[in-house]
């Protein structure tokens, strides 16, 4: 469900991983075939007519499938319609793989409750860090043995800050450039005000501490007001500024932070990095491409592979 960059990439790559796409839906239409749809034809129609098929989205949810891929846009608050898609699949004892952050950031306890009653399993590694296995890595640790998880979780904000630092440009200038390059969306609010990074931190906190967190529990500051002068003052001191999400001691902080200029956290461009502070094994760093259709689809398909 969802025919944006991630949804269509999953459909495109599914056969490479040996999976059959039995349906695609967007907010107003759906194409369904229990034997497998013609992915190319459907995506072509999405490009030309902005519709994926003749059927209604509800037909997709009622159709034949083993795992529902939820890749509709992230929404705050009640996390709809993603939340209902997830629960409808779990109630039918189907598996769910999420790329949409909403249900696991804003209603984690609710979806986990529905999952417990279900034969189906919910996986959501694609919701944090794109292709980087963040959720599954944290989940692999005993929560007592992880003291902190922090990192750069928004590629757009990181691109803006690193470009401002290297070329002493101001925020507005670099934002416009990022939009031209397609690195920032037309409405970059959630990327630059810290909301997107905060949602990812909330998901990390839910996995680490067993639920109970929503974005209301995060202290969030954005990068919109960081002037070029702050970056140059930081640079004189061997540091730079990055938008860092920090989950530790059962609290979530997101905001621009001073980090060593040549340190691990100072990734450049749209890269993401996650640092996991462990009790017995020191610090683990995982970095890579944190966004993009194929990158996120790769994480979705990895999750699907785990369900077999």
């Amino acid at each position: 469900m969802g025919a944006g960059a991630v949804g269509t990439s999953v459909a495109e790559l599914a056969s490479t991983y040996g999976h059959t796409v039995t349906g695609i839906g967007d907010s107003s239409s759906a194409a369904v075939d229990p034997g497998g749809i013609d992915v190319e034809a459907v995506l072509e129609r999405k490009r030309t007519d902005n519709t994926v098929g003749q059927l209604a989205p509800a037909d997709l949810l009622d159709g034949a499938y083993d795992a529902l891929i939820e890749a509709t846009p992230t929404t705050l608050g009640d996390a709809e319609p993603g939340y209902s898609h997830v629960t409808s699949a779990l109630e039918r004892d189907r598996h769910v793989v999420l790329a949409n952050k909403g249900p696991v950031a804003e209603r984690y306890d609710d979806v986990r409750r529905v999952e417990r009653e279900s034969e189906g399993t919910m996986l959501f590694d694609a919701t944090v860090g794109g292709a980087i296995p963040v959720v599954s890595t944290i989940d692999a640790f005993d929560s007592d043995s992880v003291s902190a998880v922090r990192g750069v979780l928004n590629g757009t904000a990181n691109f803006i800050l690193s470009r401002m630092a290297t070329d002493s440009l101001d925020y507005e200038h670099v934002l416009a450039e990022a939009q031209d390059l397609g690195v920032a969306e037309a409405d970059p609010t959630f990327d630059v005000d810290g909301t997107d990074a905060a949602l990812k931190c909330v998901i990390i906190a839910n996995v680490l501490y067993g639920g109970g967190y929503t974005i209301e529990d995060a202290t969030v500051e954005g990068i919109q007001n960081v002037p070029a002068s702050a970056l140059s003052l930081a640079a004189e001191d061997g540091r730079t500024i990055r938008l860092i999400g920090d989950v530790a001691d059962e609290r979530i902080l997101v905001g621009p932070r001073l980090v060593p200029e040549s340190g691990t956290l100072a990734v450049s461009g749209t890269q993401n990095i996650v640092q996991i502070e462990t009790q017995h094994a020191g610090r683990l760093n995982v970095s890579g491409r944190g966004a993009g259709g194929h990158e996120t689809a790769t994480a979705v398909l990895r999750d699907i592979g785990l369900l077999e």
Partner: peptide, 13 residues
């Protein structure tokens, strides 16, 4: 005023 601080417990220099 906005405060841009180092990371608690993170790398310092």
């Amino acid at each position: 005023l906005q405060v841009i601080s180092p990371l608690a417990g993170g790398e310092t220099a």
